[in-house]
Amino acid sequence: MTDSGFRLKGSVVTTVLLEIQTFSLDDIVFHLKEKIDQVPHFFNQAPIIIDISKMKRGIRLEEFEVLIQSVSALGLGVIGWRCDPDALPVWNASVTIPLLPASKARPINMSPAVKEEASPDVVVKTVVEERLVPQATKVITKPIRSGQQVYAEGDLIILNQVSAGAEVLADGNIHVYGALRGRALAGVKGDVEARIFCKSMEAELVSIAGNFMLSDALRNIVWKDSAQVLLVDDSLEIVPL
């Protein structure tokens, strides 16, 4: 604990980049609203960065401020702006939102239907920056009952039992501090380094990155005892703990 009552930490978030090519406020607002209406959940309160580095003609401060207001009015949260460092407008210090450093970004693939709809003079291009976001560990204290399914994008920790007929899945590791009687699938997005740990191995199925083993085979290795499951050269190993 610090005396100050807070901690400063680094954090990476995925945001939407609004890359302006030609400034035409009405067009931008119209087409942006159209896109938001297609996937309202995605855009609701989404952080957004306005990028003017691709603009051939510059933009005036008044125009830029109106743009920020208009984008905010559509329910997006403008968290910063970006500009070509060699073409920094003279008014750059007057903008109320922070100026962010330039970075490489790639356009997201739109589905064909969306592409067709978009008219050639659309000046709004949605760009999502993909960055590695560390996934939080999911911790569950209640038993996972038959018929229930739990999925964690990171590691999954269960401080209870996993019943037969239940299924637990994680992109990362799975820890079960109780009997594992159901199915456990770790590294479901292909992470071969993922492992499964459990206090009592009684699983119907264990799998790491798609390599699985059924209870019949498990019974001959470790049964009703603590164990870990890991992948060694594309084959599952069950090791007593």
Partner: peptide, 13 residues
């Protein structure tokens, strides 16, 4: 027992 386990899950959720 299996069905009871299932219903316990439904009670919880």
């Amino acid at each position: 027992v299996r069905d009871s386990d299932r219903i316990l899950g439904i009670l919880q959720s």
